[in-house]
Design a protein around this nucleic acid. Sequence first.
DNA 1: ACCTTTTCACCTAGGTGTGAATCT
DNA 2: AGATTCACACCTAGGTGAAAAGGT
Lengths: 519, 519
Amino acid sequence: MALSSRARAFSVEALVGRPSKRKFQDPIQEEQPELQEKKGGEEEEERRSCAAGKSEPLEKQLKTESSTTASPGCGSDSGDGNSSESLEEKDIQMELQGSELWKRFHDIGTEMIITKAGRRMFPSVRVKVKGLDPGKQYYVAIDVVPVDSKRYRYVYHSSQWMVAGNTDHLCIIPRFYVHPDSPCSGETWMRQIISFDHMKLTNNEMDDKGHIILQSMHKYKPRVHVIEQDSSVDLSQLQSLPTEGVKTFSFKETEFTTVTAYQNQQITKLKIERNPFAKGFRDTGRNRGVLDGLLETYPWRPSFTLDFKTFGADTQSGSSGSSPVTSSGGAPSPLNLLSPPCFSPMFHLPTSSLGMPCPEAYLHNVNLPLCCKICPTNFWQQQPLVLPAPERLASSNSSQSLAPLMMEVPMLSSLGVTNSKSGSSEDSGDQYLQAPDSTSQMLYGLQAPGNILLPNSITQEALSCSFHPSYGFYRYNFTMPSRLINGPNHLKVNDDSQVSFREGKCNHVHWYPAINHYL
Amino acid sequence: MALSSRARAFSVEALVGRPSKRKFQDPIQEEQPELQEKKGGEEEEERRSCAAGKSEPLEKQLKTESSTTASPGCGSDSGDGNSSESLEEKDIQMELQGSELWKRFHDIGTEMIITKAGRRMFPSVRVKVKGLDPGKQYYVAIDVVPVDSKRYRYVYHSSQWMVAGNTDHLCIIPRFYVHPDSPCSGETWMRQIISFDHMKLTNNEMDDKGHIILQSMHKYKPRVHVIEQDSSVDLSQLQSLPTEGVKTFSFKETEFTTVTAYQNQQITKLKIERNPFAKGFRDTGRNRGVLDGLLETYPWRPSFTLDFKTFGADTQSGSSGSSPVTSSGGAPSPLNLLSPPCFSPMFHLPTSSLGMPCPEAYLHNVNLPLCCKICPTNFWQQQPLVLPAPERLASSNSSQSLAPLMMEVPMLSSLGVTNSKSGSSEDSGDQYLQAPDSTSQMLYGLQAPGNILLPNSITQEALSCSFHPSYGFYRYNFTMPSRLINGPNHLKVNDDSQVSFREGKCNHVHWYPAINHYL
DNA sequence: ACCTTTTCACCTAGGTGTGAATCT
DNA sequence: AGATTCACACCTAGGTGAAAAGGT
């Protein structure tokens, strides 16, 4: 394997001489290595029940606990009149898949390359979720939030990441990547591994492809959100517009540092070893270099013959069969995140309303403040950070570029900021945007409609960010047909019974309202 | 190029000696060659205004014509209270893209390979649509319907397709392929080429991947449907549940014969010449065979140097820049389709409710007859043709297989068949399922809700098909990010203004109802 | 005979890290 | 000097028709 010259020049001795942070006695114990040693308190929070909502407002909490009708596996009884149950929530649990691989990276110090064109994550975030209402509709989305406000640099001779100063986080619209299966029933979500393979990270602040925009040399952490979409359950009572909830999960081992080129060659080596797309750089016997044996001798890898299976085979695709649930249980919002200035949310919706200078229909949907409803077009056009250029929108061609369903709509922060109906961004919104600077898992419920995924604590500094950018919800549609539908079907009819079956008729459809790609 | 031995053995002389059905004077005239010569009456219908709805019920027709607020380009004014406009319709027009290429194939006699695993179409169906309400939400879907009830065989010595008897159409659930961008605003639909590249055809009656199931050696024709989804426009009035419409378009030149191996080597050659994935079989100078010059001398190809540009470059991706709109105007339902027994519709929805033995919520949505609402679980379980096996469903793993959003729900024919609330499939539904055997573009409107995409005329014989299978609506999610979102955004904030931005908060979301993947 | 299935070489399309070049 | 970009070789993943094999 050929490591980068830089890495080779600076990191060899450190690599060899660096004492291992941890050692595994056997694969069993390895399953939650960092939980055993590192940052006990914080890890403890992550390890215990990952049910979200335990710090939610009492009202919601009670509803969550009182829900008994929607246990996984009984998905056939969500019928009439259960819109009154739409507020119910259960203890949603999330388990990280491939956590062993994640932990291997984490122990080294995970690095994720970000490029202008967008780079996938490896490993990618894959989770399993439990405790959803099988009959309820949910969105599942992911975002990537800063772990702190520090800029880092990698010190080669010590193979360590050092703080290189405070960061000046860009006033970029943080974006969400909405899982392409969204919205989907709880039953379906729970039945499958929810994978974010196709999400891409970029350092291009001008990115127009919906990738997650990050800054290089910073530490980030992915968060997975499970968002209810109640009204779809009983569409005959849509006028009730029930308040719904969001559960957020994150996993310590998925923390990573963004880079434009790998700094730690151990990371490079592990990526090459595990990422199928980097197979071309693997040692095939012919081009083994002097450093090739380093990873094998590194202590986080047990000396088993079946190591790879333990870690999910060659790829990360294994659903961590050897991993107990506790090893990667997600903790709702356990992160300590400093709020970078202007890290405020923006809401991207599917293409549906893209190109509409003011999709007022959606403004309605999110219950925008009056100022927005009155002058919706201006509202958008005044937000260069949010509004895509019409030309660019026009160039969106799904047939050529496989454009996804995306669109954007002001949500959260825009709503909060302008919620006073004054249109001013300075004199309002604090009640939603400003939260106590605490590490508790408390979730503050917003009784007022129209507030979505209000992220963490955001101060006046954040609010002063012009245009109060909101979270960018992107919806990628990469999924392919699943194995469903259509059991055995060999019935044939004698063609003597021919019937007229002419085209040319167009029938009216009665479309019942449901939930759109509003995430 | 190496043609199949069979084709070589049987078709050479026919290929060379066959008189061209048509000759082009120049590329300009070539743009609608078959419209000039072939089947004048039927083609004429296709060429004239492809506005759908002109034969619709008066009520709907009037509404269509009275709509003036939603002209393409003004997409920002669909706001409050426009649910009353949701019934409005305009003259929707559809234009086939790449029609020149389609016509080249059509002149030869288009063949489409179908395989067990599923095969893409080449050319694929790509359309442009006009006349939509920019602010309205639409689904766009495609299905493939039989042209007749005949089985064909290819006679090599005459290079012709001959009727080989009447067909015994399988009692297979006809399926729809819903464009992955669905639902989407009319403005967005109109701005882009709507492509169905990823749709696949299969001859596997047991297909569980959502592909379009066809029978080999039969003639089919794709149809593109534009389906309104009104209630999304004004979600504050969802209780109104307005009736909505479907516009169906088809293009004569997209007719094709299904094969498991190409019969006519001219087709083979043209496919190789134009399909990028078959580039490996193109003549690179080294392996030119004796037949390689045949296509070049064939008359549908003008002897221009820029021929390929005329036909949309090497691939079919060109949006027929040289093609006038009239050349491929879609005619709503101009086909003469005999109804194969059991060719009745089934409705597949996104994965959302898959695995729910009875997604009663959706039964509600489609306003199923009482018998279904009362015993929904049995309703599904009694339909082996429709209900996917739970095991298969469970194996659906979007992270591994990139499973799409799919689910199924009884719609159209199921509704029609059981619409008498008696549960009997014999004594009802004719008013919806039986249509005059005519080639007119008449669209019959269904005042009763819950009838979607009622296909063509279906007689009692069709209704007698057990389980009254319904159309299979599949939703593939292949799309990628389009170029949108996020204008210049370089605002930075002094990091002195650090604020707490901790994770651990979970905010409540007020989800307003919208439209789901109900197609 | 005729049709279908399977395997294969050869493509497209795009995800890897490399290493040189470039930027700041 | 550190960070970023770019062209590149080398992969994965999957869409082609050819040709042989299999089925009826």
